[in-house]
Design a protein around this nucleic acid. Structure first.
Length: 229
DNA sequence: CTAGGGATCAGCT
DNA sequence: GCTGATCCCTAGC
């Protein structure tokens, strides 16, 4: 079995070129709890300086500094008070582009991923250990279905246990706990579809979201609500 | 549909 | 130092 990682050279290009090539790649995170691996099915490119939707648009800050560094590192950010999202940094020093990992399918460690997801979910819900009033609920009843384990950028991070601690992690380094594996050769010829990015008001016209055609783990598309400016 | 929650940052004092 | 708007979302009504 090949543990071949994605080469840094592959990532050191404009994110719009890299993004479709990440589909089918496997992001895996090895922790004390075990290994969870996720095959990427949906990504979005963010282009840096020229892209008003990019965190790097207004220049380097403490939060987005990783985007300005070497390609192949993880840029993790926290949003909406409770969610993490992970990006793969592309291009090179001073060219802050990145690809947001929006969804995937758990290929290893599904048990562990399910536990992580249900623990966090029940805490965010109506309190610890919500039980069905009719008594029908077994502990497993709350479990997310496998398809939903990493269906959405924040769910993907939950399943992999990616938090601020993984910000800056080197995805191209074999000894790194968080790494990006190249797809098996048989999986490379998948049909890719393209469309507008999710939740982006500025530059909503560019089709920089990429996903594997027909894949059920791709997140539900919603147009962003118009917000006053 | 909405609440939820924390971090960030521009703009101000 | 503070204030308020925003944020690439999710789960539960």
């Amino acid at each position: 079995m090949s543990a071949r990682l994605v080469a840094r050279d592959f990532l050191a290009r404009p994110s719009v070129e890299v993004a479709p090539g990440l589909l089918g790649c496997v992001l895996e995170h090895e922790t004390a709890e075990g290994l969870v691996a996720i095959e990427l099915t949906e990504v979005e490119a963010y282009a840096g300086w020229a892209d008003p939707a990019s965190h790097a648009y207004r220049g380097m800050t403490g939060r987005n500094a990783v985007m300005f560094g070497e390609a192949g590192h993880a840029y993790v950010y926290f949003t909406y008070g409770m969610h993490f999202c992970v990006n793969v940094v592309c291009e090179g020093e001073g060219a802050p582009s990145a690809v947001l990992l929006r969804a995937g399918r758990v290929t290893e460690g599904a048990e562990l991923a399910a536990v992580r997801r249900s623990v966090r979910s029940s805490r965010a819900a109506t309190g610890p250990q919500a039980v069905h009033p009719d008594g029908a609920g077994t502990p497993d009843a709350r479990r997310p279905v496998p398809r939903d384990l990493a269906r959405g950028p924040a769910r993907l991070c939950q399943a992999l246990d990616i938090t601020r601690a993984q910000n800056g992690a080197d995805l191209c380094e074999p000894s790194s706990p968080l790494r990006l594996r190249a797809p098996a050769d048989a999986d490379t010829a998948r049909l890719v579809e393209t469309g507008p990015r999710v939740g982006v008001t500025a530059a909503a016209d560019v089709p920089w979201r990429y996903w594997l055609s027909g894949d059920l783990t791709v997140s539900a598309y919603r147009l962003h609500k118009r917000r006053a400016r």
